[in-house]
Write a protein that binds this DNA or RNA. Structure first.
Lengths: 420, 420
DNA sequence: CCATTTCGTTCCCTCCCCGAACAAATAGAC
DNA sequence: GTCTATTTGTTCGGGGAGGGAACGAAATGG
């Protein structure tokens, strides 16, 4: 799992953008390209970004002076040229900053510490015996997790450049406000500001579904893609959309809500109170709801949901037709939901991302056939469907990416406001 | 109807963008702002766009030299200031170019001629007795329509700057290719190139649903909005999405396809052959299908669909409960479809746009209540819902906007490529 | 030892745009 | 009528971003 996260070698992260892009400052483009490509020569930066060599020298010089980049030997094998002056590698200075990424939950929060090059330094998991939703208590948890991780690697909060926090629910990234979350009491909390004051370090907040997209964009299968969609199925169904190397947060800055689009008007009851939501056919509780019947369980058998689903999968694998039909139905509805995403966004890549073993029940071939039957034929083939199961740290990585992008924004003096 | 299109006075069109935007050349921003605002002083351009007065003088001077802008008296009442040097108005030079916009159909094509300021010069309607789908015949129709309009205003093809053509179906705007259309035989036609050669004038092509979005963005209710969604219900259900003052064409450049998203898995049969598409509950043929039963008609009574629906509306209005139930059902499904758009794109404005009298059956209040029940509550109220019924020239206006934006792109030396 | 090749730097130039100073054209105050 | 306040528009200098060419640097191959 962890090896999967940085399979192309260590210390590379972030969206990989090549080609000229007149809309962003060149200095930022160069930095992003170096971070995304690892040790790379100035000449290659110039070629790949379509920039004159002189400009690259000047700007990288400034970046090195401001201690963001450093020179680092480029692997001689990668330098395909034999003749000529050997290239000097450029890389992000890992020790320039360290950041923390925290995935907040009511019972089971996770966190990681990354260096500036995206390398994982340590991680942590916090389980609470009882659900915790008090804002103060959650802030205390975050602070304690950050401090514990810093202590583990012998650093202090002074060394910390930023913290990214993923909060489930409706989160407005640009303002840092949490409109509503099942992991936090109250409504419309100015979470980023409060947390920044509490920790003493800039805090960025985002929706957990957007974090998955960010994780794929920075560390995962979407790094070399300008456009892709990510769908997760966990306690709920989430989606993230990346357009032009950026996470699409909707016109109002919250983000797409796939889980509650209607695939069956007046259909199955969803925990949101409405009927026919996609989530009502796919999420943990929806499967569990049917599993109770299929496995002849009593409601009193309050088996934890994950184990229940495991049992159902085992039953389906060993030929239990009722169990199989439950998963068939889930897949049928998933196909409809994914086809909606394809019809509306037309992504060239579709990633099913999640923690571990979330998609064991899924037969990709069957899913693709069903999706084909649900998707309008615009002459183009369906986008490739990739299943990506990370470890538990998926969201924490996304939160770390959030923190890293916050740092580069402030450090490279970029004020990127979302248009209202 | 027509008055509605340019209600703020004549000769203004195009997206109205205020505030600084570092990603676009200043010259283009100024031009767009002047076109969108009508006669406006240099000082106001500088204030509204956040540009220094000196730059505005220099750049408008260049635009006047290249005959794109001209000075024009600004209405004294609009100049709220009494004291001070009177402002000199800037406006688009209407005679700089004329463009044609054509909405292609198999039976009933429409077209308009616009001057460079977006003022309608003339319009035309072409009905053919038999459905016409041959590419050559359609090109001949377009050419004839353009020539007829030019003749009407005493101009020739030499005066024409560009032609915009709206083609139903799957159209790739950037490449000008038509992947598939029910109005054209064949597949994957390089329509823009062929038409350009045939007419001898640059031709831009787009999907008819995107044209509606473009029409609203340039001439309609969306001119002052950065983000909004447009939904049309005609022979099919189409949608257009405007993000950041630009028509969103999806990651692959075709555009969102709302009509065939599934609102009811395995539901009503759609003419696309699939089941449960939104269109199968809303489009002309879907209503007509039910109307046959409701009005006790025989299939032999091959009444034209529009008249049939008119009759059904009359019946519903006069208390026919079966007829009412048909429209209730359509509204219910429309609410689900619109809620999907809101869940995924979160537009701050939703426009229901169409030709004439398309939404008579719609009770907006009821629709909003049903949408509320279908939309996940993210703490924000539903976006305002605006119904905009144009005349027949809706799509032709969109095609005209397409031609105008093509001209400004080439004329102002901008090469805006969509990212693949 | 020299030619070749590739990499990185330096210097100059152009383009875009801002800011300040200035000229122009009005209304109102005296 | 004259002067002042006020707003508009233009001119000019300057700074920052980035391109292009020339040059120095560091290797390999003959």
């Amino acid at each position: 799992m962890a090896a999967d996260i940085a399979e192309e070698g260590d210390s590379v992260c972030g969206p990989l953008i090549v080609g000229p892009d007149p809309s962003r400052p060149l200095k930022l483009q160069i930095f992003d390209y170096v971070r995304a490509s690892g040790p790379v020569s100035r000449a290659r930066v110039a070629r790949d970004l379509g920039i004159s060599p002189g400009t690259v020298s000047t700007l990288t010089g400034a970046l090195i002076d401001s201690m963001l980049l450093c020179e680092s030997p480029v692997s001689r094998s990668a330098a395909n040229s034999i003749r000529g002056r050997p290239p000097v590698g450029l890389a992000v200075r890992p020790e320039a900053f360290i950041v923390a990424g925290i995935k907040l939950s009511s019972r089971d929060s996770t966190g990681i510490l990354l260096d500036f090059a995206g390398q994982q330094l340590t991680s942590i998991r916090h389980r609470s015996s009882a659900p915790q939703t008090d804002v103060d208590a959650q802030l205390a948890t975050i602070t304690a997790m950050v401090d514990k991780m810093l202590c583990d690697v012998g650093r202090t909060r002074r060394d910390l450049g930023a913290v990214g926090v993923g909060v489930p629910g409706f989160v407005h990234h640009a303002s840092g406000r949490v409109h509503w979350s099942w992991a936090l009491d109250g409504r419309d909390i100015d979470f980023a500001r409060i947390a920044t004051e509490r920790i003493g370090v800039p805090v960025a907040v985002d929706n957990d579904a957007n974090l998955v997209a960010l994780a794929e964009l920075w560390f995962g299968k979407g790094r070399d893609r300008a456009n892709f969609a990510v769908v997760t199925i966990e306690q709920g169904v989430g989606m993230g959309m990346v357009l032009d190397h950026r996470v699409f947060r909707g016109a109002n800055g919250v983000g797409p809500e796939l889980g509650h689009t209607k695939v069956q008007i007046d259909g199955a009851l969803c925990r949101c109170g409405q009927r026919g939501c996609l989530e009502a056919y796919l999420a943990d509780y929806a499967i569990a709801r049917e599993a109770y019947a299929a496995l002849n369980l009593q409601i009193e058998d309050t088996q934890p949901v994950p184990e229940l689903i495991d049992a159902l999968q085992t039953a389906a694998a060993s030929g239990n037709e009722v169990a199989q039909s439950i998963f068939d139905r889930a897949r049928h509805h998933l196909a409809a939901g994914l086809s909606t995403v394809i019809n509306l966004f037309d992504p060239p890549l579709l990633i099913l991302s999640g923690g571990q073993r979330r998609f064991d029940w899924l037969n990709t071939q069957d899913l693709l056939v069903e999706m084909q039957a649900f998707t309008i034929d615009s002459g183009q083939p369906l986008p490739p469907l990739v299943i990506h199961e990370w470890g538990d740290l998926l969201w924490a990585y996304g939160a770390g990416a959030l923190a890293l992008s916050r740092i580069t924004e402030t450090e490279l003096g970029l004020v990127r406001e979302d248009v209202a």
